[in-house]
Computed example of a mutant assay.
Amino acid sequence: MDAAHTTELDFRDATEDDIAALVALLDSAYRGDASRAGWTTEADLLDGQRTDPEGVREVITAPQSRLLVVASGGELVACCQLARRADPVGETAAYFGMFAVRPGLQGNGLGKRILAEAEHTVRAEWGAREMQMTVISAREDLIAWYERRGYARTGKMIPFPYGEERFGIPRRPDLQFELLVKPLG
């Protein structure tokens, strides 16, 4: 059994005291040369930051939203956002976002464990019947990873927020997000 399966993980809700560490984690997992140590990098698609302190604070304080901090041995190793939503027929759905795993720990099953815990949490606490997420459509490798975990492409595209540098500086003119969904049973 690999280290990802034997490591004890602690999940808790983020607080405002975590904001600086969360911004650093999110940027390290997606932007710049540090992100290339993992496989989730978006450095070839976007420059600049992944998020900012205000964006993280908004997720922490928003109603119907949680930002989970994942620690191992007292160190922040990952995070993910869970937000409660209603699906088109009025059932409870959840949104999964702001997911990051420290680059040096990627590729060993840690992300899979965190995603499973997030799915369990929204089912148990909110009665969510579906998990939704958006992924940059050019990230075929990442979409394939989610498909292996039961998520389906919907073909529904959401425009990238060009001109809003707080989300990054696009290196291509064709970026957009695709909605992925998974029934939670």
Rank of each mutant, 00 (worst) to 15 (best):
V135H: 05
R129T: 14
R172F: 10
F96D: 03
A152V: 12
E58D: 14
Q81M: 15
Y162A: 09
A138T: 14
Q81Y: 04
S28P: 01
T61H: 15
V56D: 09
Y146T: 03
T51E: 07
V89G: 01
A37C: 00
G48F: 05
L184C: 07
M98A: 13
D18G: 11
A78S: 15
E147T: 08
D13K: 14
R31Q: 14
R129A: 07
C80R: 01
S137Y: 04
I60N: 13
A78Q: 10
K156G: 00
S72V: 03
V181N: 01
Y146G: 04
L110C: 05
R84T: 07
L115C: 08
K156H: 12
R102P: 01
K156A: 10
D17M: 01
G155T: 01
W126S: 04
A20S: 14
E119Y: 02
L142N: 00
V69A: 12
A29M: 08
A128G: 05
F99H: 08
E54L: 13
G74I: 11
R148S: 10
T61Q: 15
R102W: 06
A21C: 05
N108V: 13
P161T: 12
A29I: 04
Q106T: 08
L110Y: 06
F99P: 04
E91F: 07
V56N: 12
D18K: 11
G163S: 09
A128P: 03
